Simulated assay, not measured.
Amino acid sequence: MTHTQLMLRPSDYPVLIEHAARYSDLDPSRRIGRDALVRWFEDARIAVERDVFGAALVGRMRLLLASVRVDVLAPLQVAARTAVGARIEAGQYRIGIGVSHIGTSSFAYTYGVYAGDECVATGESVSVHATAGGPAPLPEPVRDALKTLRMDAPEPTRLQRGPARAVREAYPFRLDVRTRFGDLDPNRHVNNVALAGWYLDGLAELHLDVLGYPTGGPLDGLSPSSLRVDYLDEVRYPGIYQLRVGVLDLDDASVRYACGLFDGPRCIGLAEAVGAHHLPEEDGDPGDLAVRLEPFRMRSV
């Protein structure tokens, strides 16, 4: 269990936001997708900042997302149920949000998603205050507002990476991605939610390759339960980028992936994901997926 999966209660968070699941949040497994949860966290973050900072201050500031992490603890569905099977209002969740760290130019949020009182997902994110010259100290009104949202939670994790993670050729699997105008946000770069979706697309393409491109896409059980994204630089439109994927670790039940996003040879984004490679009987028998994933281990450079 990672520290983002600590079993906090809804009342532990300084802010609780009601959030209704939508049909468009569902992935092919008929559950809330990981990229949808990244969007839920963004919605909660923006709502809180407009409330505690004030719309005028938010309009003057430039806050960039440096990283986001999602850990899914239980299936999230449009028709939500508690762990004991008691039905709650269809599609209604609560998102808890609080500040876990305040630095010089950055601060971190921690999140919990609840169906009733059951925690079904957790997460964290780091935001950086930036000007044209780069990271800049947080304005005092922002720092004071953030203090009202502080809660007792661990500081954000750091992505552990060696120099190979920034080298294109270290990743065995490649997917080219063209930016779309609809992916841009008000800062005129590709939105963090769209980028999280790119990494999930890269994993799905790897799974298709491993499974022999089955009709309808890869099996549902291969979706990652944990996704961490680090945004190293802005991704612009128009452009074509290389998304690379490799396998870091394999054990009896799970696989840990590394992903890198590259503009030419320059690394502009990193991600890690953890998922299962042992599938339930009803998903069919695709063979030994661990063996099939072995050729995609990260390379030495």
Results as ranks from 00 to 15, higher is better:
Met1Ile: 13
Met7Leu: 13
Asp12Leu: 02
Pro14Glu: 02
Glu18Leu: 02
Glu18Tyr: 06
Ala21Gln: 00
Asp27Lys: 01
Pro28Cys: 00
Ser29Ala: 11
Ala44Pro: 00
Arg45Trp: 01
Ile46Tyr: 06
Ile46Glu: 15
Val48Gly: 09
Arg50Gln: 10
Val52Lys: 14
Phe53Pro: 07
Phe53Ala: 12
Ala55Asp: 15
Ala56His: 10
Leu63Phe: 10
Ala66Cys: 03
Ala66Met: 07
Val68Gly: 05
Val70Arg: 01
Val72Tyr: 12
Pro75Ala: 04
Leu76His: 03
Val78Pro: 00
Ala80Glu: 10
Gly85Val: 13
Gly85His: 11
Gly85Asp: 03
Arg87Tyr: 04
Gly91Asp: 06
Gly96Arg: 02
Ser100Pro: 09
His101Pro: 08
His101Tyr: 09
Ile102Arg: 06
Gly103Asn: 06
Gly103Arg: 04
Ser105Val: 04
Tyr109Met: 04
Tyr114Phe: 15
Thr122Asn: 10
Thr122Phe: 11
Ser125Thr: 04
Ser125Lys: 03
Val128Pro: 00
His129Arg: 10
His129Val: 12
His129Asp: 03
Gly133Ala: 12
Gly133Met: 12
Gly134Asp: 13
Pro135Leu: 08
Pro141Glu: 03
Pro141Ala: 01
Arg143Trp: 07
Ala145Glu: 03
Leu146Lys: 02
Pro154Arg: 06
Glu155Cys: 03
Glu155Ile: 03
Glu155Phe: 10
Thr157Gln: 15
Gln160Met: 07
Arg161Val: 13
Ala164Gly: 09
Arg165Gln: 12
Arg165Asn: 09
Ala166Asn: 10
Ala166Val: 14
Ala166Gln: 11
Arg168Phe: 01
Arg168Tyr: 09
Ala170Val: 07
Phe173Arg: 07
Phe173Ile: 09
Arg174Cys: 11
Arg180Lys: 13
Asn192Gln: 11
Leu195Met: 15
Leu195Ala: 01
Gly197Ser: 05
Trp198Ile: 07
Gly202Glu: 05
Gly202Trp: 01
Asp209Gly: 14
Val210Gly: 01
Gly212Trp: 01
Gly212Cys: 04
Pro214Cys: 13
Gly216Pro: 05
Gly221Gln: 07
Ser223Leu: 14
Ser226Asn: 10
Ser226Met: 06
Ser226Val: 13
Ser226Asp: 15
Leu227Met: 08
Val229Phe: 05
Tyr231Ser: 03
Tyr231His: 06
Gly239Ile: 09
Tyr241Cys: 08
Leu243Glu: 12
Gly246Val: 11
Ala253Gln: 14
Ser254Ile: 13
Val255Thr: 15
Ala258Arg: 09
Phe262Thr: 02
Phe262Glu: 04
Gly264Trp: 02
Cys267Gln: 11
Cys267Ser: 14
Cys267Leu: 01
Gly269Val: 07
Leu270Pro: 00
Leu270Val: 05
Gly275Phe: 08
His278Leu: 13
Pro280Ile: 01
Glu281Val: 14
Asp283Phe: 15
Gly284Tyr: 11
Leu289Gly: 00
Leu293Val: 07
Glu294Trp: 08
Glu294Asp: 03
